[in-house]
């Protein structure tokens, strides 16, 4: 019994950290731009498949391939996501959400067309192989490292928001766009900045998760799932709320998968989120700002 409890605890921590990293970019966009990036999943897909493209078709090494992928990601976000869609439809959400979904579908179908599941995408990002025993729980090293990286990334984001000037601007915009505009903030620049920053966590996330995650062109949707749940539960883009929400969902996931069945995790998480919404419609954090 205690063994199981320990296992649940360890996995709750690891999964919670991973969920946090998955949803950080989504929460960021949600907090600053006040829109939902339903095409968020394509960042994961592109991170994997563009890196693979550079390695396979252009013969680059792992690090140069990742670097080139980052450039491609930034350009794509700016030229395909932000300028034609987000900027244009920021007030018309039904068009925004549908077009973002469509872009995500196009990207994943293109990935599937060029590299079908049978193509065997494999990116060697394992840092420490093997697994470690903590109490009764045996856990792959890579997962622990991923959790560590997740916490590190989140900490850096928080420091960025609290200490830097751009972070302050973003918090200002997230709190009140109109006042921020009156004070002379260029909201558009802040928006672009936020979109760019939001690429970082999912990219890191999927790269460290590649060794223990099933890689297929449709991998974006379950991750988007988690991000949406964390964002709703955490209070639409509040980072403090998101952190708590990510660990709550991690705990739910660990408990359900060890005690009942792993396939029930999405269902139970959704039910819990809906239940919490009934009692706290604003999510965990009541404030509507970034931090």
């Amino acid at each position: 019994m205690i063994g199981t409890m320990g296992m649940v605890g360890v996995y709750a921590f690891v999964l919670g950290s991973l969920y946090l990293l998955m949803s950080l970019g989504f929460s960021l966009i949600c907090g600053v731009l006040r829109v939902f990036h339903l095409g968020y999943g394509l960042i994961f897909v592109m991170a994997v498949y563009v890196t693979w493209m550079f390695m396979e078709n252009f013969g680059l090494g792992l690090i140069p391939a990742i670097a080139s992928m980052c450039v491609v990601q930034c350009l794509f976000t700016l030229l395909v996501i932000y300028l034609p869609i987000v900027k244009r439809y920021i007030e018309k959400e039904e068009l925004l959400l549908t077009s973002l979904l469509l872009v995500a579908i196009i990207i994943e179908e293109a990935a599937n067309y060029v590299y079908p599941v049978t193509a065997g995408v494999d990116i060697p990002t394992t840092i420490v192989p093997g697994s470690i025993k903590i109490g009764a729980a045996s856990i792959p090293n890579q997962m622990l490292i991923a959790a560590g990286i997740a916490i590190l990334t989140t900490a850096m984001f928080i420091i960025f928001f609290l200490k830097s000037r751009s972070g302050l601007l973003m918090r200002a915009v997230s709190q009140d766009v109109r006042s921020a505009k009156l004070m002379g903030t260029s909201t558009e620049r802040v928006y672009i900045y936020a979109m760019m920053l939001s690429i970082i966590p999912p990219t890191i996330c999927i790269l460290v998760m590649v060794p223990f995650w099933s890689i297929e062109p449709y991998l974006g949707w379950p991750l988007l799932h988690t991000a949406i749940l964390v964002a709703i539960l955490g209070g639409l883009g509040n980072l403090r709320g998101s952190i708590i929400a990510a660990y709550i969902l991690g705990l739910i996931a660990a408990t359900v998968s060890f005690l009942i069945d792993p396939s029930l995790v999405p269902l139970v998480s959704l039910l819990v989120v809906v239940l919490i919404l009934i009692f706290r419609p604003q999510g965990i954090s009541r404030s509507e700002s970034l931090w």
């Binding site: 939902f36 959400l97 949406i228 749940l229 709703i232 396939s263 959704l270 919404l277 419609p281």
Partner: peptide
């Protein structure tokens, strides 16, 4: 209960969860 975006997001997730159940 759910207004605006909340409703859209929850309804977006429901069929996907149902799909998970079918698996």
């Amino acid at each position: 209960i759910a207004k605006g975006l909340y409703f859209s997001l929850i309804t977006l997730l429901l069929p996907l969860i149902f799909l998970e159940i079918t698996y």
